[in-house]
Design a protein around this nucleic acid. Structure first.
Lengths: 128, 128
DNA sequence: CGGAATCCCAAAAGATACTG
DNA sequence: CAGTATCTTTTGGGATTCCG
């Protein structure tokens, strides 16, 4: 726990210009911010309303507290998630920011695709 | 290059049941198949038509041949990409399968979001 | 050009234990 | 409950070399 908590993250990768076509660049931008195994599931888990640390953990199934803690910090930095302090009783919950709502269609498509893909896998495993 | 080329990958993670809500599970399913830095950009890069190895490399900007080779294999296994052999001249290209088209809306949303996010970042860096 | 083989490093992620 | 600290393992990914 040092004083200035050095944050040297780049905002976005440098694949923006003529190095790669704009579509590829845009996808890479998105993936850069939403990278890893947990960020999107976590954001979706909060879409029903703010949750406490332990409840998020349960929603995600098997994330370790260390990972969850780190991911929450990342998402706070990128303004997708905010801590909500409440007194009586003194608890902290994590909720989505307005900006995170811009991800709604992304998560929607990911869910839809995941569902149909699982069906496909199930079907193909039966039929051969 | 051994004989049986052991493939022990699980088709999908086991977060499917009551352990986590269906939306979270579906997102995790999707992310499990499309994980990493390169798969989605790669699929999108091929959406304009089949490309050769070197051309894909150029499209993605800076992927190493080793990574590209690995990612192409992964995507072949999951039936998103297929090799296309052509004679006269003898070349190999990589093209999208019909199934990969089911990802169209996903990539569309990722691109849209990436573009608007980059704008937002640019704007906020100027104003604040 | 189209890759495969090898080596190496950094980041991601998991296990476990611990504190307020 | 809400995290933090340490440690270990796994994966991602780059550099380089080599071969058909």
């Amino acid at each position: 726990m040092n004083i200035d908590t050095e944050i040297d993250e780049e905002v976005l990768p440098d694949c923006s210009k003529e190095t790669c076509p704009s579509g590829v660049a845009a996808i890479r931008d998105t993936l850069y911010v939403l990278n890893g195994k947990w960020k999107l599931p976590l954001i979706f888990a909060l879409s029903g309303g703010p949750l406490r640390f332990k409840d998020i953990q349960r929603s995600l199934g098997d994330i370790t507290p260390k990972m969850l803690s780190k991911e929450l910090k990342d998402l706070e930095l990128n303004e997708f998630v905010e801590r909500i302090y409440s007194t009586t009783p003194a608890t902290v919950t994590y909720g989505l920011t307005p900006y995170s709502r811009s991800l709604h269609k992304v998560t929607r498509e990911l869910i839809d695709w995941g569902k149909q893909h699982r069906q496909r896998i199930g079907a193909s495993r039966k039929s051969g």
